[in-house]
Design a protein around this nucleic acid. Structure first.
Lengths: 212, 212
DNA sequence: GCCAAAATGGGTCCCGAGACCTATTCCCGG
DNA sequence: CCGGGAATAGGTCTCGGGACCCATTTTGGC
Protein backbone atom coordinates (compact mmCIF):
# COMPACT_ATOMS: atom_id res chain seq x y z
CA UNK A 1 0.00 0.00 0.00
CA UNK A 2 1.19 3.44 -0.86
CA UNK A 3 1.98 5.61 2.13
CA UNK A 4 1.70 9.39 2.23
CA UNK A 5 2.68 12.31 4.45
CA UNK A 6 0.78 15.58 4.12
CA UNK A 7 2.17 19.06 4.72
CA UNK A 8 0.30 22.34 4.48
CA UNK A 9 -0.18 25.23 6.84
CA UNK A 10 -3.93 25.17 6.33
CA UNK A 11 -5.61 22.46 8.30
CA UNK A 12 -8.74 22.64 6.19
CA UNK A 13 -6.86 21.75 3.05
CA UNK A 14 -4.99 18.96 4.82
CA UNK A 15 -8.25 17.39 5.90
CA UNK A 16 -9.77 17.59 2.46
CA UNK A 17 -6.76 16.06 0.80
CA UNK A 18 -6.47 13.40 3.48
CA UNK A 19 -10.06 12.32 2.90
CA UNK A 20 -9.56 12.13 -0.84
CA UNK A 21 -6.34 10.16 -0.55
CA UNK A 22 -7.75 7.71 1.97
CA UNK A 23 -10.82 7.18 -0.17
CA UNK A 24 -8.48 6.40 -3.04
CA UNK A 25 -6.76 3.75 -0.98
CA UNK A 26 -3.65 5.53 0.21
CA UNK A 27 -2.43 5.39 3.79
CA UNK A 28 -1.87 8.87 5.19
CA UNK A 29 0.77 8.30 7.88
CA UNK A 30 0.98 11.84 9.19
CA UNK A 31 0.46 15.54 8.73
CA UNK A 32 2.70 18.56 9.22
CA UNK A 33 2.02 22.29 9.40
CA UNK A 34 5.39 23.55 8.21
CA UNK A 35 8.38 22.46 6.15
CA UNK A 36 10.54 21.63 9.13
CA UNK A 37 7.97 19.28 10.60
CA UNK A 38 7.30 17.84 7.18
CA UNK A 39 10.88 16.86 6.48
CA UNK A 40 11.35 15.45 9.99
CA UNK A 41 8.18 13.44 9.65
CA UNK A 42 9.25 12.18 6.25
CA UNK A 43 12.61 11.17 7.64
CA UNK A 44 10.98 9.24 10.45
CA UNK A 45 8.13 7.59 8.57
CA UNK A 46 9.82 7.09 5.16
CA UNK A 47 6.58 7.46 3.20
CA UNK A 48 6.29 6.73 -0.52
CA UNK A 49 4.98 10.20 -1.23
CA UNK A 50 4.93 13.59 0.48
CA UNK A 51 2.21 16.03 -0.55
CA UNK A 52 3.32 19.53 0.29
CA UNK A 53 2.50 23.20 -0.20
CA UNK A 54 5.23 25.42 -1.65
CA UNK A 55 4.62 28.27 0.73
CA UNK A 56 4.89 27.14 4.31
CA UNK A 57 6.19 28.66 7.53
CA UNK A 58 9.67 27.95 8.92
CA UNK A 59 10.97 26.02 5.92
CA UNK A 60 9.47 26.62 2.49
CA UNK A 61 8.41 23.77 0.25
CA UNK A 62 11.46 23.92 -2.00
CA UNK A 63 13.95 23.69 0.84
CA UNK A 64 11.83 21.10 2.55
CA UNK A 65 11.90 19.04 -0.64
CA UNK A 66 15.68 19.11 -0.72
CA UNK A 67 15.82 18.02 2.90
CA UNK A 68 13.36 15.23 2.26
CA UNK A 69 15.51 14.03 -0.64
CA UNK A 70 18.26 13.54 1.93
CA UNK A 71 16.31 12.23 4.89
CA UNK A 72 13.94 10.02 2.88
CA UNK A 73 15.54 9.30 -0.49
CA UNK A 74 12.74 6.93 -1.47
CA UNK A 75 10.02 9.54 -1.02
CA UNK A 76 8.52 11.36 -4.00
CA UNK A 77 7.28 14.88 -3.50
CA UNK A 78 4.03 16.27 -4.88
CA UNK A 79 4.00 20.03 -4.70
CA UNK A 80 0.88 22.13 -4.38
CA UNK A 81 0.85 25.81 -5.17
CA UNK A 82 -1.29 28.91 -5.27
CA UNK A 83 -1.77 30.75 -8.49
CA UNK A 84 1.03 33.11 -9.41
CA UNK A 85 3.82 30.98 -8.06
CA UNK A 86 4.74 29.53 -11.42
CA UNK A 87 8.23 30.90 -11.05
CA UNK A 88 8.90 28.31 -8.39
CA UNK A 89 8.14 25.44 -10.74
CA UNK A 90 11.67 25.14 -12.06
CA UNK A 91 13.15 25.30 -8.59
CA UNK A 92 10.70 22.68 -7.40
CA UNK A 93 11.57 20.25 -10.18
CA UNK A 94 15.20 21.03 -9.61
CA UNK A 95 14.83 20.25 -5.92
CA UNK A 96 13.45 16.88 -6.95
CA UNK A 97 9.68 17.30 -6.88
CA UNK A 98 7.71 14.77 -8.90
CA UNK A 99 4.59 16.82 -9.47
CA UNK A 100 3.55 20.43 -9.32
CA UNK A 101 -0.13 21.32 -9.19
CA UNK A 102 -2.02 24.54 -8.74
CA UNK A 103 -4.39 24.50 -5.81
CA UNK A 104 -7.37 25.18 -7.99
CA UNK A 105 -7.15 21.67 -9.40
CA UNK A 106 -9.56 19.00 -8.29
CA UNK A 107 -8.90 16.51 -5.54
CA UNK A 108 -8.97 13.88 -8.27
CA UNK A 109 -5.97 15.59 -9.82
CA UNK A 110 -4.11 15.38 -6.55
CA UNK A 111 -4.92 11.71 -6.21
CA UNK A 112 -3.71 11.09 -9.74
CA UNK A 113 -0.53 13.02 -9.11
CA UNK A 114 0.17 10.98 -6.00
CA UNK A 115 -0.37 7.81 -7.94
CA UNK A 116 1.96 8.99 -10.73
CA UNK A 117 4.56 10.02 -8.19
CA UNK A 118 4.40 6.63 -6.50
CA UNK A 119 5.02 5.07 -9.90
CA UNK A 120 8.00 7.34 -10.42
CA UNK A 121 6.52 9.61 -13.05
CA UNK A 122 6.55 13.36 -13.19
CA UNK A 123 3.25 15.11 -13.67
CA UNK A 124 2.50 18.73 -14.38
CA UNK A 125 -0.67 20.60 -15.10
CA UNK A 126 -0.54 21.67 -18.73
CA UNK A 127 -0.54 25.40 -18.11
CA UNK A 128 2.40 24.94 -15.80
CA UNK A 129 4.29 22.92 -18.37
CA UNK A 130 3.83 25.80 -20.75
CA UNK A 131 5.05 28.31 -18.22
CA UNK A 132 8.09 26.14 -17.56
CA UNK A 133 9.01 26.37 -21.19
CA UNK A 134 8.42 30.10 -21.20
CA UNK A 135 10.71 30.62 -18.28
CA UNK A 136 13.61 28.84 -19.83
CA UNK A 137 13.11 29.82 -23.39
CA UNK A 138 15.73 32.22 -24.55
CA UNK A 139 13.90 35.54 -24.92
CA UNK A 140 16.00 36.20 -28.02
CA UNK A 141 15.03 32.88 -29.56
CA UNK A 142 11.35 33.50 -30.20
CA UNK A 143 11.98 37.04 -31.38
CA UNK A 144 14.47 36.10 -34.07
CA UNK A 145 15.45 39.76 -33.92
CA UNK A 146 15.70 40.50 -37.63
CA UNK A 147 19.36 41.38 -37.70
CA UNK A 148 20.02 44.82 -39.16
CA UNK A 149 23.31 43.50 -40.48
CA UNK A 150 24.00 42.11 -43.93
CA UNK A 151 25.24 38.54 -44.34
CA UNK A 152 28.77 39.74 -44.87
CA UNK A 153 28.65 41.95 -41.81
CA UNK A 154 27.36 39.11 -39.66
CA UNK A 155 30.12 36.90 -40.97
CA UNK A 156 32.75 39.46 -40.08
CA UNK A 157 31.29 40.18 -36.67
CA UNK A 158 31.31 36.46 -35.89
CA UNK A 159 34.97 36.18 -36.86
CA UNK A 160 35.82 39.15 -34.69
CA UNK A 161 33.95 37.51 -31.84
CA UNK A 162 36.00 34.40 -32.45
CA UNK A 163 39.10 36.42 -31.71
CA UNK A 164 40.34 37.37 -35.15
CA UNK A 165 42.01 40.73 -35.70
CA UNK A 166 41.08 42.90 -38.65
CA UNK A 167 43.95 41.58 -40.76
CA UNK A 168 43.16 37.98 -39.85
CA UNK A 169 39.55 38.41 -40.87
CA UNK A 170 40.75 39.91 -44.15
CA UNK A 171 43.05 36.95 -44.82
CA UNK A 172 40.32 34.49 -43.92
CA UNK A 173 37.79 36.06 -46.28
CA UNK A 174 40.28 36.84 -49.05
CA UNK A 175 39.47 40.53 -48.99
CA UNK A 176 41.48 43.60 -48.11
CA UNK A 177 41.85 44.72 -44.51
CA UNK A 178 40.39 48.02 -45.61
CA UNK A 179 37.15 46.37 -46.60
CA UNK A 180 36.93 44.66 -43.25
CA UNK A 181 37.36 48.01 -41.57
CA UNK A 182 34.62 49.47 -43.74
CA UNK A 183 32.25 46.65 -42.82
CA UNK A 184 33.09 47.08 -39.17
CA UNK A 185 32.39 50.79 -39.38
CA UNK A 186 28.93 50.15 -40.79
CA UNK A 187 28.37 47.48 -38.14
CA UNK A 188 29.19 50.03 -35.44
CA UNK A 189 26.65 52.45 -36.85
CA UNK A 190 23.93 49.82 -37.12
CA UNK A 191 24.53 48.33 -33.69
CA UNK A 192 25.22 51.66 -32.04
CA UNK A 193 28.56 50.36 -30.81
CA UNK A 194 31.68 52.36 -30.39
CA UNK A 195 34.19 49.57 -30.84
CA UNK A 196 34.49 45.87 -31.60
CA UNK A 197 33.91 44.88 -28.01
CA UNK A 198 30.54 46.58 -27.83
CA UNK A 199 29.63 45.39 -31.30
CA UNK A 200 30.33 41.78 -30.40
CA UNK A 201 28.40 42.15 -27.17
CA UNK A 202 25.40 43.58 -29.00
CA UNK A 203 25.70 40.72 -31.43
CA UNK A 204 25.59 38.23 -28.59
CA UNK A 205 22.60 39.91 -26.98
CA UNK A 206 20.76 39.92 -30.28
CA UNK A 207 21.64 36.34 -31.00
CA UNK A 208 23.49 37.26 -34.18
CA UNK A 209 26.81 36.14 -32.81
CA UNK A 210 27.42 32.80 -31.17
CA UNK A 211 29.92 32.25 -28.40
CA UNK A 212 32.27 29.40 -29.14
CA UNK B 1 -14.95 6.53 -24.25
CA UNK B 2 -11.52 7.87 -24.97
CA UNK B 3 -10.49 7.62 -28.61
CA UNK B 4 -6.93 7.23 -29.83
CA UNK B 5 -4.95 7.40 -33.06
CA UNK B 6 -1.60 5.60 -33.24
CA UNK B 7 1.38 6.64 -35.35
CA UNK B 8 4.72 4.87 -35.63
CA UNK B 9 6.74 3.60 -38.52
CA UNK B 10 7.16 0.19 -36.90
CA UNK B 11 4.09 -1.94 -37.26
CA UNK B 12 5.17 -4.24 -34.49
CA UNK B 13 5.18 -1.46 -31.96
CA UNK B 14 1.83 -0.18 -33.20
CA UNK B 15 0.28 -3.57 -32.66
CA UNK B 16 1.69 -3.93 -29.17
CA UNK B 17 0.51 -0.49 -28.12
CA UNK B 18 -2.88 -1.02 -29.74
CA UNK B 19 -3.42 -4.22 -27.77
CA UNK B 20 -2.45 -2.52 -24.52
CA UNK B 21 -4.68 0.47 -25.13
CA UNK B 22 -7.67 -1.61 -26.15
CA UNK B 23 -7.24 -3.84 -23.12
CA UNK B 24 -7.26 -0.69 -21.02
CA UNK B 25 -10.57 0.33 -22.53
CA UNK B 26 -9.51 2.88 -25.13
CA UNK B 27 -10.87 2.91 -28.67
CA UNK B 28 -8.07 2.92 -31.22
CA UNK B 29 -9.66 4.59 -34.25
CA UNK B 30 -6.76 4.28 -36.64
CA UNK B 31 -3.05 3.84 -37.27
CA UNK B 32 -0.55 5.74 -39.38
CA UNK B 33 2.97 4.94 -40.55
CA UNK B 34 4.29 8.49 -40.91
CA UNK B 35 3.68 12.00 -39.63
CA UNK B 36 1.78 13.14 -42.69
CA UNK B 37 -0.72 10.29 -42.46
CA UNK B 38 -0.94 10.77 -38.71
CA UNK B 39 -1.94 14.42 -38.88
CA UNK B 40 -4.41 13.80 -41.70
CA UNK B 41 -5.96 10.94 -39.77
CA UNK B 42 -6.16 13.06 -36.64
CA UNK B 43 -7.82 15.85 -38.59
CA UNK B 44 -10.40 13.46 -39.97
CA UNK B 45 -11.13 11.38 -36.88
CA UNK B 46 -10.67 14.09 -34.19
CA UNK B 47 -9.44 11.63 -31.56
CA UNK B 48 -8.93 12.53 -27.91
CA UNK B 49 -5.33 11.41 -27.99
CA UNK B 50 -2.65 10.75 -30.61
CA UNK B 51 0.20 8.43 -29.64
CA UNK B 52 3.16 9.13 -31.87
CA UNK B 53 6.84 8.40 -32.38
CA UNK B 54 9.18 11.37 -32.64
CA UNK B 55 11.18 9.96 -35.52
CA UNK B 56 8.95 9.14 -38.44
CA UNK B 57 9.25 9.31 -42.22
CA UNK B 58 7.87 12.19 -44.29
CA UNK B 59 6.91 14.42 -41.36
CA UNK B 60 8.68 14.07 -38.02
CA UNK B 61 6.78 13.85 -34.77
CA UNK B 62 7.40 17.44 -33.75
CA UNK B 63 6.10 18.92 -36.98
CA UNK B 64 3.26 16.44 -37.01
CA UNK B 65 2.32 17.57 -33.52
CA UNK B 66 2.12 21.18 -34.63
CA UNK B 67 -0.07 20.20 -37.55
CA UNK B 68 -2.31 18.13 -35.32
CA UNK B 69 -2.70 21.12 -32.99
CA UNK B 70 -4.19 22.92 -35.96
CA UNK B 71 -6.22 20.19 -37.57
CA UNK B 72 -7.49 18.64 -34.36
CA UNK B 73 -7.24 21.23 -31.58
CA UNK B 74 -8.95 18.94 -29.10
CA UNK B 75 -6.41 16.15 -29.50
CA UNK B 76 -3.63 15.64 -26.97
CA UNK B 77 -0.36 14.20 -28.18
CA UNK B 78 1.63 11.52 -26.40
CA UNK B 79 5.14 11.33 -27.77
CA UNK B 80 7.27 8.20 -27.80
CA UNK B 81 11.00 8.33 -28.28
CA UNK B 82 14.12 6.25 -28.54
CA UNK B 83 16.94 6.75 -26.09
CA UNK B 84 19.23 9.62 -26.91
CA UNK B 85 16.57 11.91 -28.26
CA UNK B 86 16.20 13.85 -25.05
CA UNK B 87 17.12 17.01 -26.89
CA UNK B 88 13.77 16.90 -28.64
CA UNK B 89 11.85 17.00 -25.38
CA UNK B 90 11.72 20.77 -25.18
CA UNK B 91 10.67 21.06 -28.80
CA UNK B 92 8.00 18.45 -28.26
CA UNK B 93 6.50 20.20 -25.25
CA UNK B 94 6.79 23.45 -27.13
CA UNK B 95 4.92 21.96 -30.05
CA UNK B 96 2.18 21.08 -27.63
CA UNK B 97 2.83 17.47 -26.67
CA UNK B 98 1.21 16.31 -23.45
CA UNK B 99 3.57 13.47 -22.65
CA UNK B 100 7.01 12.36 -23.62
CA UNK B 101 8.10 8.79 -22.92
CA UNK B 102 11.15 6.77 -23.79
CA UNK B 103 10.38 3.60 -25.65
CA UNK B 104 11.95 1.45 -23.00
CA UNK B 105 9.07 2.20 -20.68
CA UNK B 106 6.38 -0.36 -20.06
CA UNK B 107 3.09 -0.53 -21.93
CA UNK B 108 1.47 0.34 -18.62
CA UNK B 109 3.34 3.61 -18.70
CA UNK B 110 1.96 4.35 -22.13
CA UNK B 111 -1.55 3.57 -20.98
CA UNK B 112 -1.12 5.84 -18.00
CA UNK B 113 0.25 8.61 -20.17
CA UNK B 114 -2.71 8.35 -22.51
CA UNK B 115 -5.04 8.53 -19.56
CA UNK B 116 -3.25 11.59 -18.19
CA UNK B 117 -3.27 13.23 -21.58
CA UNK B 118 -6.99 12.64 -21.95
CA UNK B 119 -7.44 14.33 -18.59
CA UNK B 120 -5.38 17.26 -19.78
CA UNK B 121 -2.28 16.63 -17.72
CA UNK B 122 1.32 16.61 -18.81
CA UNK B 123 3.37 13.59 -17.92
CA UNK B 124 7.08 12.99 -18.22
CA UNK B 125 9.30 10.15 -17.20
CA UNK B 126 11.43 11.39 -14.32
CA UNK B 127 14.76 11.07 -16.09
CA UNK B 128 13.38 13.16 -18.91
CA UNK B 129 12.15 15.83 -16.55
CA UNK B 130 15.66 16.02 -15.19
CA UNK B 131 17.15 16.29 -18.63
CA UNK B 132 14.70 19.06 -19.47
CA UNK B 133 16.02 21.06 -16.58
CA UNK B 134 19.60 20.28 -17.58
CA UNK B 135 19.04 21.53 -21.07
CA UNK B 136 17.73 24.86 -19.99
CA UNK B 137 19.89 25.40 -17.00
CA UNK B 138 22.63 27.89 -17.63
CA UNK B 139 25.77 25.77 -17.75
CA UNK B 140 27.62 28.54 -15.94
CA UNK B 141 25.05 28.69 -13.16
CA UNK B 142 25.64 25.36 -11.46
CA UNK B 143 29.41 25.50 -11.88
CA UNK B 144 29.96 28.86 -10.25
CA UNK B 145 33.32 28.70 -12.02
CA UNK B 146 35.62 29.97 -9.31
CA UNK B 147 36.81 33.06 -11.08
CA UNK B 148 40.57 33.30 -11.38
CA UNK B 149 40.24 37.06 -11.23
CA UNK B 150 40.56 39.27 -8.19
CA UNK B 151 37.64 41.45 -7.10
CA UNK B 152 39.20 44.50 -8.62
CA UNK B 153 39.88 42.74 -11.89
CA UNK B 154 36.29 41.53 -12.09
CA UNK B 155 35.08 45.05 -11.42
CA UNK B 156 37.23 46.43 -14.20
CA UNK B 157 36.27 43.71 -16.66
CA UNK B 158 32.59 44.40 -15.99
CA UNK B 159 33.06 48.10 -16.66
CA UNK B 160 34.89 47.33 -19.88
CA UNK B 161 32.01 45.05 -20.86
CA UNK B 162 29.66 47.92 -20.12
CA UNK B 163 31.41 49.92 -22.80
CA UNK B 164 33.87 51.99 -20.81
CA UNK B 165 37.26 52.84 -22.28
CA UNK B 166 40.41 52.51 -20.22
CA UNK B 167 40.35 56.19 -19.25
CA UNK B 168 36.66 56.07 -18.38
CA UNK B 169 37.19 53.10 -16.12
CA UNK B 170 40.04 54.96 -14.47
CA UNK B 171 37.86 58.01 -13.85
CA UNK B 172 35.05 55.89 -12.53
CA UNK B 173 37.24 54.05 -10.05
CA UNK B 174 39.36 57.08 -9.09
CA UNK B 175 42.58 55.39 -10.10
CA UNK B 176 45.13 56.08 -12.81
CA UNK B 177 44.60 54.85 -16.35
CA UNK B 178 47.92 53.12 -16.02
CA UNK B 179 46.62 50.99 -13.18
CA UNK B 180 43.61 50.00 -15.24
CA UNK B 181 45.93 48.92 -18.02
CA UNK B 182 47.93 46.87 -15.55
CA UNK B 183 44.83 45.14 -14.28
CA UNK B 184 43.70 44.48 -17.83
CA UNK B 185 47.07 42.98 -18.68
CA UNK B 186 46.81 40.54 -15.80
CA UNK B 187 43.22 39.77 -16.80
CA UNK B 188 44.42 38.90 -20.31
CA UNK B 189 46.98 36.50 -18.91
CA UNK B 190 44.52 34.82 -16.57
CA UNK B 191 41.74 34.51 -19.14
CA UNK B 192 44.08 33.68 -21.99
CA UNK B 193 42.67 36.58 -23.97
CA UNK B 194 44.55 38.72 -26.38
CA UNK B 195 42.46 41.86 -26.07
CA UNK B 196 39.48 43.33 -24.27
CA UNK B 197 37.00 41.79 -26.66
CA UNK B 198 38.18 38.27 -25.96
CA UNK B 199 38.52 38.98 -22.26
CA UNK B 200 34.94 40.22 -22.02
CA UNK B 201 33.72 37.23 -24.00
CA UNK B 202 35.56 34.82 -21.70
CA UNK B 203 34.05 36.68 -18.80
CA UNK B 204 30.58 36.21 -20.22
CA UNK B 205 31.15 32.53 -20.88
CA UNK B 206 32.43 32.05 -17.35
CA UNK B 207 29.58 34.00 -15.85
CA UNK B 208 31.93 36.55 -14.33
CA UNK B 209 30.62 39.34 -16.49
CA UNK B 210 26.95 40.15 -16.92
CA UNK B 211 25.50 41.52 -20.12
CA UNK B 212 23.48 44.65 -19.52
C1' DG C 1 16.97 47.76 -67.55
C1' DC C 2 17.63 50.80 -63.80
C1' DC C 3 18.37 52.26 -59.09
C1' DA C 4 19.67 51.23 -54.44
C1' DA C 5 22.09 48.74 -51.46
C1' DA C 6 25.88 45.69 -50.65
C1' DA C 7 30.59 44.60 -51.26
C1' DT C 8 34.89 45.85 -52.52
C1' DG C 9 39.07 48.91 -52.23
C1' DG C 10 42.17 53.16 -51.31
C1' DG C 11 44.16 57.02 -48.38
C1' DT C 12 45.22 59.65 -44.01
C1' DC C 13 45.23 60.75 -39.31
C1' DC C 14 45.58 59.90 -34.57
C1' DC C 15 44.61 58.07 -30.33
C1' DG C 16 43.74 54.10 -27.55
C1' DA C 17 45.39 49.89 -26.37
C1' DG C 18 48.52 46.37 -25.41
C1' DA C 19 53.60 44.75 -24.53
C1' DC C 20 57.34 45.22 -21.40
C1' DC C 21 59.81 46.95 -17.32
C1' DT C 22 60.01 48.93 -12.83
C1' DA C 23 58.52 50.56 -8.19
C1' DT C 24 55.85 51.33 -3.84
C1' DT C 25 52.39 50.23 -0.40
C1' DC C 26 49.43 47.23 1.94
C1' DC C 27 47.66 43.21 3.78
C1' DC C 28 47.24 38.33 4.53
C1' DG C 29 48.86 33.82 5.70
C1' DG C 30 52.32 30.62 6.98
C1' DC D 1 58.02 38.28 10.97
C1' DC D 2 58.66 37.80 6.37
C1' DG D 3 57.31 36.55 1.62
C1' DG D 4 54.07 36.99 -1.83
C1' DG D 5 50.09 38.55 -4.06
C1' DA D 6 47.04 42.50 -4.83
C1' DA D 7 46.54 47.23 -5.90
C1' DT D 8 48.56 51.25 -6.99
C1' DA D 9 51.42 54.11 -10.43
C1' DG D 10 55.02 55.66 -13.69
C1' DG D 11 57.47 55.37 -18.45
C1' DT D 12 58.04 54.12 -23.40
C1' DC D 13 57.12 52.15 -27.74
C1' DT D 14 54.50 50.35 -31.41
C1' DC D 15 50.64 49.00 -33.91
C1' DG D 16 45.96 48.15 -34.58
C1' DG D 17 41.67 50.10 -34.70
C1' DG D 18 38.37 53.63 -35.55
C1' DA D 19 36.93 58.31 -37.86
C1' DC D 20 36.20 60.53 -42.13
C1' DC D 21 37.31 61.18 -46.86
C1' DC D 22 36.64 58.84 -51.31
C1' DA D 23 35.59 55.45 -55.77
C1' DT D 24 34.27 51.12 -58.29
C1' DT D 25 31.84 46.93 -59.09
C1' DT D 26 28.38 43.63 -58.22
C1' DT D 27 23.96 42.18 -56.99
C1' DG D 28 19.18 42.09 -56.22
C1' DG D 29 14.51 43.91 -56.49
C1' DC D 30 11.07 46.44 -58.85
Amino acid sequence: MTTVVLADDHQLLRQAVRRALEDAGFAVLGEAGDGEEASNLAGRLQPDVVVMDVTMPVLDGIRATRRIRELAPGARVVMLTMHGEESLLADAIDAGASAFLTKDCSLQEVVKAVRSAADGDVMLSPDLAASLLDQFRDPAADTPAPSPLTKREEEILQLVADGRSTTEVARELFISAKTVKNHLASIYVKLDARDRTQAVLSGVRMGIVHLR
